[in-house]
């Protein structure tokens, strides 16, 4: 498994490679479920790869493999040494290696999803690793989370609020969450989902498909001139 290819190394501008989409968010918010949903929805039309960052062992990777939503060989697990945020932000070497290995083995790919290990609200992806990022919250964390902000909530390209089906049970007010998120996100999109009810997370998948499409237009080789 060699990933020492010149064309990957010095091309941080992204020409000729897949879009790298980071999915981050707190523990239990539904990152793995969203990753599986995106594979389900986008698998038929896009060439995919997935990198998981598990806190323990390879649990998330195993979940995805069992879910049967993607060829198991296209999932790579990265271990993060107790520090999931380090692996996606400060020292992205292992994740970049995994992404490049996938591209080399299965490429060309359209989209590589890098799912972070569940961490806290401050964890965001380095631009050296993810071209776009989704931050996933769930309503059970409380409807104040968007107002409190934090880099994940404010800066992610897309904020997903998951488990809306639980809102009545946990007393979360979706209107409040929507309003607060809009206030701190400077117009960037927010989508509400319940992946348990919509197993394809179709609104999110649609957003991702759009992003991949414009990435392709901006970064295709024919565009290099």
């Amino acid at each position: 498994m060699s990933a020492n290819h010149d064309d990957h190394h010095d091309a941080p501008d992204g020409h000729g490679r897949a879009l790298r989409l980071g999915i981050g968010g707190p523990v239990g918010s539904g990152k793995t479920a969203l990753t599986a949903a995106l594979c389900r929805s986008l698998g038929p039309s896009l060439r995919l790869g997935v990198v998981t960052n598990d806190i323990y062992t390879t649990e998330d990777a195993d979940f995805l493999r069992r879910a049967g939503v993607i060829d198991p060989d296209r999932i790579m697990a990265v271990q993060t040494g107790c520090c999931p945020h380090t692996a996606i932000r400060d020292d992205i070497a292992a994740n970049v290696d995994a992404v490049e290995t996938l591209e080399e083995r299965f490429g060309p790919l359209d989209l590589v999803i890098v799912e972070s290990g569940g961490d806290n609200l401050t964890a965001t992806f380095s631009r050296g690793l993810a071209d776009r990022q989704i931050f996933v919250l769930d309503v059970s964390g409380g409807d104040k989370v968007p107002r409190k902000g934090g880099p994940g909530v404010t800066s992610a390209d897309l904020l997903v609020v998951n488990k809306t089906d639980l809102a009545p049970m946990v007393g979360a007010d979706l209107t409040v969450m929507s309003r607060d998120a809009a206030a701190v996100r400077d117009g960037k999109p927010v989508l509400f989902t319940s992946i348990r009810e919509d197993r394809g997370a179709h609104s999110v998948a649609e957003w991702v498909a759009g992003v991949v499409d414009s990435w392709r237009h901006q970064h295709s080789h024919s565009h290099l001139s």
């Binding site: 990265v78 271990q79 993060t80 040494g81 520090c83 380090t86 692996a87 400060d90 020292d91 992205i92 070497a93 292992a94 290696d97």
Partner: peptide
């Protein structure tokens, strides 16, 4: 230890 070369994940 901040050198971004993956060392942080090895014990």
């Amino acid at each position: 230890s901040r050198l971004p070369a993956g060392g942080h994940a090895h014990s």
